[in-house]
Design a protein around this nucleic acid. Structure first.
Length: 493
RNA sequence: GGGGGCGUGGUGAAGUCUGGAGUUCACGCCGGCCUGUCAAGCCGGAGGUCGCGGGUUCAAAUCCCGUCGCUCCCGCCA
């Protein structure tokens, strides 16, 4: 029983309630983040994030990894994402870049004889925000010498088992499920499938090979594909079904065919009259249709069919155990991705080893890389690869990627030289800690598990960053600001 | 770069479609009362540039245009 109370520090009326019942405007929360963080849910996020990182460090330490810090003021390597630049006072007109990842430094550490490296590393990428993306974020970065893919995946499993055991108190089953990139795309329409539920994509090309329905036949004749999913008994009205068509169009399809399975097993659909009985039966069989089910069909280029059905699958699919964690390795990524216009763009950074340099050169559209992702409940937690350790292979890969020798030498010459001094074969990975914690905490966006995140426009309402600086500071750096008002494009360019 | 949603006392929402007095609900705040409380209860009160600017109209929170902020998505994220 208290005998007296003394107020050590009075509190002014709070700008918003700290209970969990009301959702406060994000800008206001960030403006008073120190209050927002008092909320029990945010406290829990802080605590479990700390536990995740502590468990990672403990596990990596136990596995014999050496934690090594790498610089955050580095040379710009203008590949991949946009760099953040930091002007140099000592070399006016020149800039450091903030690292997009410690990639090249950890490879240098392999060369340096650090056989097992890890780091909880802050990374910076000047790209647009998403619910799962911030311009600065944190990764568990690791690399091992004399390693191949299996060594990396084994460590990933140990780290994930330890982290999930610590934070969720459940034992993840190992080995984790695996899918090749091609299989993931074919069965789930995405390279980061949520495998907590099925509703898999079904290819209907064979079933409809001889169809007289011109919308399907035309697509198939042009080398396209028809696919479908059984979205289950959604109980949608006619307008609800038509909304699915609109949804498919927003996602990039030219259209969508819906079918509803009647109690007698027949298919009700606006296009049923264009399909013969054999085809309808075969469709129902292929999609394992039972009365009440809604079948959604898309005909288009294979890539469009996959992505649209993959998204519709996420729209309608419901994990049965919503609290389950289903980690998944996606392997055998292609070296290149095919753009809409048919051009090829590298799917990874240029330091990932292709399965075969020859295949990469001769059949680039099907060539595979020794690259892999870790996916958790449909969230891409990170990626890694077996790296190139042979300077000649590295040079060849630069060439195939369209980076000519002169450019490669100018940008990466120092790295190519380093590779010459007996580089061990090596491989590694980076886990996005923010995304991992947001999944573990069942948070809808990454800001909930970052103590001081930025808004979608890259601002911090609390401290007012980014902000103008004194002219004197700019003078020291040899920088003058050109007015950006009224023109997003610099004049004369 | 593009598309969608949101912006209304300190907070969250309704009102906006279909223009008609800053109206309403809950929380908070201030004052009073009551109290075996645990989302306390009762009574009273204060608190507003309906994000901002312009337009249409007799009249705008409401319709139109622009702009800012927050957010979701496409592009982008090697």
């Amino acid at each position: 029983m208290a005998e007296a109370i003394e107020v050590l520090s009075a509190a002014a009326a709070l700008p918003f309630p700290l209970d969990e019942r009301t959702e406060i405007d994000e800008g206001k929360r960030l403006q008073h983040r120190y209050l927002d963080l008092r909320r029990p849910r945010m406290q829990a996020n802080l605590v479990n994030r700390s536990k995740v990182v502590a468990t990672m460090r403990r596990t990596m330490d136990q596995l014999g990894f050496l934690e090594v810090e790498t610089p955050t003021l580095i040379a710009s390597t203008p590949e991949g994402a946009r760099d953040f630049l930091v002007p140099s006072r000592l070399s006016p007109g020149e800039f450091y870049a903030l690292p997009q990842s410690p990639q090249l430094f950890k490879q240098l550490l392999m060369i340096a004889g650090v056989e097992r490296y890890y780091q909880v590393a802050r990374c910076y990428r000047d790209e647009d925000f998403r619910a799962d993306r911030q311009i600065e974020f944190t990764q568990l970065d690791f690399e091992g010498a004399f390693w191949g893919q299996e060594d990396v995946l084994a460590v990933l499993e140990q780290v994930m088992v330890a982290v999930v055991g610590e934070v969720r108190g459940v034992q993840l089953e190992t080995p984790f499920r695996r899918l090749s990139y091609a299989e993931a795309m074919a069965r789930y329409g995405t390279d980061k499938p949520d495998v907590r539920f099925a509703m898999e994509l079904v290819n209907l090309d064979t079933v409809l090979a001889a169809t007289g329905f011109t919308a399907f036949a035309g697509v198939l004749d042009d080398g396209g594909s028809v696919g479908g999913i059984n979205a289950g008994a959604l109980g949608l009205s006619r307008s609800g079904l038509d909304a699915q068509v609109e949804r498919a169009k927003v996602l990039g399809a030219k259209g969508l065919v819906w079918m509803v399975v009647e109690p007698d097993g027949s298919l009700r659909s606006p296009v049923a009259k264009f399909l013969d009985e054999t085809e309808l039966v075969a469709l129902a069989t292929a999609l394992r249709a039972t009365p009440g089910d809604h079948l959604l069909l898309v005909a288009d280029r294979p890539r469009v069919v996959a992505t649209v059905l993959g998204q519709l699958r996420l729209d309608h699919g419901r994990p049965e155990g919503h609290d389950d964690l289903c980690p998944l390795f996606v392997t055998d990524f292609p070296v290149f991705e095919v753009e809409e216009d048919g051009s090829l763009v590298p799917a990874h950074h240029p330091f990932s080893a292709p399965v075969s340099v020859e295949a990469m050169r001769d059949t680039p559209e099907t060539a595979l890389a020794q690259a892999y992702d870790l996916v958790l409940n449909g969230v891409e937690l990170g990626s890694g690869s077996v790296r190139i350790h042979d300077p000649q292979v590295q040079a060849a890969v630069f060439e195939v990627l369209g980076i000519d020798a002169e450019t490669a030498q100018r940008r990466f010459g120092w790295f190519l030289e380093a590779l010459r001094y007996g580089t061990p074969p090596h491989a590694g990975f980076a886990i996005g800690i923010d995304r991992l914690v947001s999944v573990l905490q069942d948070e809808p966006n990454i800001r909930q598990v970052m103590p001081f995140p930025k808004t979608q426009t890259g601002a911090d309402p609390l401290t007012g960053s980014p902000s103008p600086v004194d002219p004197g500071q700019l003078d020291e750096l040899g920088i003058s600001i050109r007015s950006m008002v009224g023109s997003s494009e610099p004049a004369g360019e």
